[in-house]
Design a protein around this nucleic acid. Structure first.
Lengths: 207, 207
DNA sequence: GTCTATACTTGGATAGAC
DNA sequence: GTCTATCCAAGTATAGAC
């Protein structure tokens, strides 16, 4: 058991170093050597513990993604109504940004378009997020007149794609202001829609 | 003049070979060697004519992007109303797909997150598309009640981001069905909104 | 302007000692 | 499990002949 613990510890150290490198250097800078330098261990350990660099990157994505998913599910659990949901989503997004989760995800998505064989595995790991969007939206619209307007199933995938697209662009030119403004824009439209459709604030789903 | 023509011809051959390679092999497969093989010329010519591989890729993006921009402006010029605009946009998108423009753009956007120094130049070349979206949307909404709902300026950047995000994802798992469905979804929502807001079809902007 | 040949660099991965 | 030493492939870019 001592051995297994040590091995697990090392694997975790390697994963953390990979995450840090992705955050700081981007996909392009995340070579096996760079990760090893960053985490202060030997480069060969990566291949001993993970077999290949790609497999390490997948494991790293799983770690950050699983943690964020728990946080998202938790924070969104009791939320009712679209305005409140948008507000919480905006806060979660801000967290994604400050802890670097977003950077990592974007770098990997972009990188997997570039690197060989990474693509399908990354995409598979985005599916839970489409489902989360679907669940969240279903609950957010449950008591809103907007539920007759928005086809939740069809709209969830584009929403996730928008999140990724905006981040990717923000990332490319180092300007996040437009991405940050998106939640405000969505809120604005929702409010206007609420006023137009149901009169006052009931329409938007507030209670 | 004969010399200039020959040089211009060669540059164009190289650009075309780069575009073809991006389409067929993706960013990862688009090395100077691959392009030269593909176009059946010497690899050193790339550096003689363009200085660096990055500069060639930028020139290639400019060629396809300029051509598409002319086509878009032309096709959208006389269009009135949101439903018609969505229909035309869907057709243009289908063209993007069949002639490979989309593939090239996505590969370069993804790749520029990966490669060094390409990012800012690619982003700058996306700005005209945000402007086009803004112009198009302004005209599409001119006579629609929806113009009070949608803040055109704030929404144009997210729309372009969505286009890119969806394509990037579709690209990653080789499944374009969800991206194709997006225009139908947008049309569906627009129609419902038209019925809810303005009664019948006038609201949606048809004439 | 175009070719051949090659210098130089980086990075994934492995062999084999400890 | 961890280290050193290396192999090998691929890629950008350039020098120099034609």
């Amino acid at each position: 058991m001592a051995v297994e613990t040590k091995s697990a510890d090392t694997k975790d150290r390697i994963i953390d170093a990979a995450l840090q490198t992705l955050r700081e250097e981007g996909f392009a800078g995340t070579s096996a050597r760079a990760i090893a330098d960053n985490g202060d261990f030997n480069q060969a350990l990566i291949f001993y513990h993970f077999g290949s660099l790609n497999d390490l990157l997948i494991a790293a994505l799983d770690k950050t993604s699983d943690a964020r998913m728990i946080r998202y599910r938790d924070a969104l659990a009791g939320v009712r109504g679209l305005p409140a949901t948008l507000r919480i989503a905006g806060e979660l997004y801000a967290e994604d940004q400050s802890d670097g989760h977003i950077t990592i995800l974007c770098e990997l998505v972009a990188g997997s378009a570039t690197a060989k064989g990474l693509g399908p595995q990354i995409v598979r790991r985005l599916e839970p997020w489409v489902e989360l969007t679907e669940d969240t939206l279903t609950r957010a619209l449950a008591r809103s007149p907007l539920r007759r307007l928005i086809p939740v199933k069809e709209v969830s995938y584009p929403i996730v794609a928008t999140y990724l697209g905006m981040e990717l662009l923000a990332h490319l030119d180092g300007d996040h202001s437009k991405a940050d403004a998106a939640f405000d824009t969505a809120t604005k439209i929702t409010n206007r829609l609420g006023r137009l459709l149901g009169g006052r604030d009931k329409a938007a789903g507030r209670r």
